[in-house]
């Protein structure tokens, strides 16, 4: 009798254990309560840090590189004796304090690449809203540093005005790359390297610009920037229309000339 009872108990427990095991074996997804990121005028540093923490470990996708292997510096732990990112951020780039450095490394990550790493980080300004970027800066500062991001840093909610000029990366000035006339800054800021290769940087969708000066005159280069589809390099006919036509509106005259002169000197 007891043998039968035990066998029944065994079968019941075994079946339950099997079902529980299968349900635990598949990857687990929990449905979180959504937290709207509303960082108003009276946002506290703690709220910013908490929001940044969630972004860093979640939607920002930062942990995909930072913290795994050697693709990118590990930001939350001590690196080469310099301490976590909050402690070392102020010493990275001459003339930039911690906040400015972190903001730059998020919005134009290729402007300064820590030696020993490749420039692979995407421009987070294209993926995250300005509020989210500032929350991340605050979170990173909080890693053994002092949080000095305040509500005044954060632009008012991204209405139509903010979204109209999303490509504006780098400091606050007007136009691409904050109005800088340094050619490589313009090239990075305008996103040219997204498609064109210049020297060692950039992609392979558009023609390589490393030696463009030997193929095209300054006038032709200028024309190609302003009206991209009038002449198409051989082999790139499929990509007609891919290059944006708005650079004439976005670049200042000085920037355009600096860019043209720079490119035509690339023999």
């Amino acid at each position: 009798m007891w043998a039968t009872n035990l066998r029944i108990i065994g079968i019941v427990l075994g079946t339950l254990a099997l079902y529980t095991l299968i349900a635990n074996k598949i990857p687990q997804v929990q449905s979180e309560v959504p937290h709207a990121l509303t960082l108003g005028a009276n946002v506290t540093p703690e709220q910013l840090v908490a929001a940044g923490d969630q972004l860093y470990h979640g939607a920002g996708g930062c942990t995909a590189c930072h913290g795994l292997g050697t693709r990118a510096p590990n930001l939350l732990t001590d690196e080469k004796g310099l301490g976590p990112i909050g402690a070392r951020c102020g010493k990275r780039e001459a003339g930039k304090d911690c906040k400015a450095y972190l903001y730059e490394s998020l919005t134009s990550p290729r402007a300064y690449v820590v030696s020993g790493y490749e420039p692979i980080m995407p421009e987070m300004g294209r993926i995250l809203s300005p509020q989210q970027i500032w929350a991340l800066v605050a979170f990173l500062e909080s890693q053994s540093g002092t949080v000095d991001v305040t509500a005044s840093d954060i632009p008012a909610a991204s209405g139509p005005a903010a979204s109209a000029a999303p490509a504006a990366s780098g400091g606050g000035g007007p136009g691409i790359a904050g109005g800088s006339t340094e050619p490589m800054t313009i090239i990075r800021g305008a996103g040219c390297t997204g498609c064109h290769k210049v020297g060692t940087e950039g992609g392979a969708i558009g023609p390589n610009l490393t030696h463009v000066g030997s193929r095209l005159s300054a006038a032709l280069i200028r024309e190609c920037i302003l009206k991209p589809d009038t002449r198409v390099a051989k082999g790139y006919e499929k990509f007609v229309g891919v290059m944006p036509k708005m650079f004439g509106n976005q670049l200042t005259g000085a920037q355009l000339e600096a860019l043209v002169q720079f490119l035509s000197s690339q023999k």
């Binding site: 427990l13 339950l16 079902y19 529980t20 349900a23 635990n24 997804v29 929990q30 979180e32 309560v33």
Partner: peptide
Amino acid sequence: ATPALGYAAIMISTCVL
């Protein structure tokens, strides 16, 4: 938050038991 399936399975098994 609504828990993941693994946690739910443990709860269900407990209740069934």
